[in-house]
Design a protein around this nucleic acid. Structure first.
Lengths: 106, 106
DNA sequence: CTCCATCGATTACGCATGTAAACAATAACC
DNA sequence: GGTTATTGTTTACATGCGTAATCGATGGAG
């Protein structure tokens, strides 16, 4: 259940969350360059995400069209909650307090 | 520089941040039980933290007294910033907005 | 029909991590 | 003083991750 998306995988998800469906080539176009990764790396990440059921792939001729299955909203919520739980006793207030004393809260 | 403290290691740091110095045995007393870990596991984590220079150990007779070298404040700040950067474009506001719509902000 | 280009699948590999057992040194008890 | 209990050091091992090359299938070009 806790869709464990790794940091690198999240980069790929971001591309798909921004726009989808995308072909592997399009994902590579968006992510590889930006991250300085080889095409192979992005392919691997797509496959791992498929394995984790975080995305889907629907055949379209000889290509696949990738779509996120996990919603960004859910991913963000899980990550956020995890941070609050680990470091702020699960409470938002302390987190905010932590920042108000040193931050540029644009 | 980015003192990479892992999740499990952070459990040990928490004990030392709460109170220090502590002997390995005291850390084990605090952490092993709470986490359901064996003594050996805590020993390993203390050693890895030493390797990462995240804590110090000063000999005291046959024991060592462990103290955090990294400040919790700094760890928390780094983790928080990392989350904001990764998921909220580095801005606090979106993070708060994300929660206000579904949260018990005690 | 054959060869090449594409694109996905498989395999690779080193390092971090979670989890722990085994070993070694030394202090303490009999 | 020798044996046992402590406490720290070394070794272990599976899995995940970052990063990528290679293999294989299949469609397209000539």
């Amino acid at each position: 259940m806790p869709v464990n998306i790794s940091e690198a995988e999240a980069r790929v998800m971001e591309a798909l969350w921004r726009e989808n469906p995308l072909t592997a080539d399009q994902v590579i176009g968006e992510v590889a360059k930006a991250q300085g990764w080889s095409e192979a790396t992005v392919k691997t990440l797509l496959n791992r995400l498929l394995g984790k059921k975080a995305i889907t792939a629907k055949r379209d001729g000889r290509r696949y069209l990738y779509r996120p299955r996990v919603k960004r909203e859910d991913y963000v919520a899980a990550e956020s909650r995890d941070l609050l739980d680990r470091l702020f006793d699960g409470k938002l207030a302390p987190f905010i307090a932590h920042f108000s004393e040193k931050q540029d809260l644009s």
